[in-house]
Amino acid sequence: MVPVSYYVALSAILFTIGALGVLIRRNAIIIFMSIELMLNAGNLLFVTFARSFEQLSGQVFVFFVIAVAAAEVAVGLALIVAVFKSKQSIDIDEVSNLRG
């Protein structure tokens, strides 16, 4: 059996890639994909621990995260489409009329 620490390391790497993606990339869709990567890194961690504790509660949490992520996709893509319609771009550096 693969030790728990391997899964923890993998999920930490995925989380870091996701977080860096949000900070570095400028395309709204790619930022959103990076956020999904972060959520799934959390899911992987939950499943790993649930397996090693032989509990169900961690796996149940993953279902909730998946459901919420789906709701976020619905709202997020709608917002991105709306912005694209009015700006013809989803580069978040170009979408910045709000300045102090």
């Binding site: 709306a82 978040i92 709000l98």
Partner: peptide
């Protein structure tokens, strides 16, 4: 629209941290 998009992206980013922290 821009406010909504920014709030959404950063809010979802924050949920990512929250989920990982809870895990």
């Amino acid at each position: 629209e821009e406010a909504g998009l920014k709030y959404f992206l950063l809010g979802a980013f924050a949920s990512g941290f929250l989920v990982y922290g809870i895990a």
